[in-house]
């Protein structure tokens, strides 16, 4: 019975794994090891499966759990780079090597410098592909607040990335 429950759970999880992994990786960047976040969220979700009303909202259900876990956690992961200087130096090397992984990391690093709500909102909208309505439910905020977070977050992100790129160009 237990195996059946686990199989059923993983059957629900498989189609949303990629999206959930990307959300966790972007959201936990620099704060928490994303693999641990995924695993802990899955365990909590599994134990609270009876609270899931629709299988189609499984991704939102998982994301809600991971957000609460992050909010409650004081565990910090080791930063991949000891300082922004290190990160940008690494980035400069990556640009030379045309490494896409580092381009994504550049984005995650920039996102991690935003306010928590802005960061979460942008990840949910841009990376996970959630609608404003869905984000409203997750963040328990109004439509105008979400739209404002998206606009301000993007503007802020633009500034951060542009600064980083200028730095990289000078290094390269």
């Amino acid at each position: 019975m237990k195996n059946k429950k686990q199989r059923h759970f993983l059957k629900l999880y498989e189609p949303v794994h990629d999206s959930f992994e990307r959300f966790c990786r972007a959201r936990a960047y620099g704060d928490y090891p994303f693999e641990d976040l995924i695993n802990e969220s899955l365990l909590v979700a599994y134990s609270k499966m009876d609270q899931l009303k629709k299988s189609k909202s499984f991704l939102s259900f998982l994301i809600g759990i991971s957000i609460r876990l992050l909010a409650n956690s004081k565990k910090k992961c080791k930063p991949e780079y000891t300082s922004d200087e290190d990160f940008l130096q690494n980035k400069a090397d990556a640009v030379n090597n045309l490494d896409q992984k580092f381009e994504v990391d550049l984005l995650y690093n920039a996102l991690s410098q935003l306010k928590m709500e802005q960061r979460e909102c942008l990840i949910l909208f841009e990376i996970t592909g959630f609608s404003i309505k869905e984000i409203m439910a997750i963040q328990k905020s109004s439509e105008s607040a979400i739209k404002q977070r998206l606009a301000r977050g993007r503007a802020e992100l633009g500034k951060i990335i542009s600064n980083e790129m200028n730095y990289i160009k000078t290094k390269v």
């Binding site: 899955l42 381009e103 592909g129």
Partner: peptide
Amino acid sequence: LFDKARNEKPRLSFEDASKAFF
């Protein structure tokens, strides 16, 4: 950049995630 992030392959595969979960 967002487009690249959206289309990037997961670094943790479903198999590894389910193994850890089990």
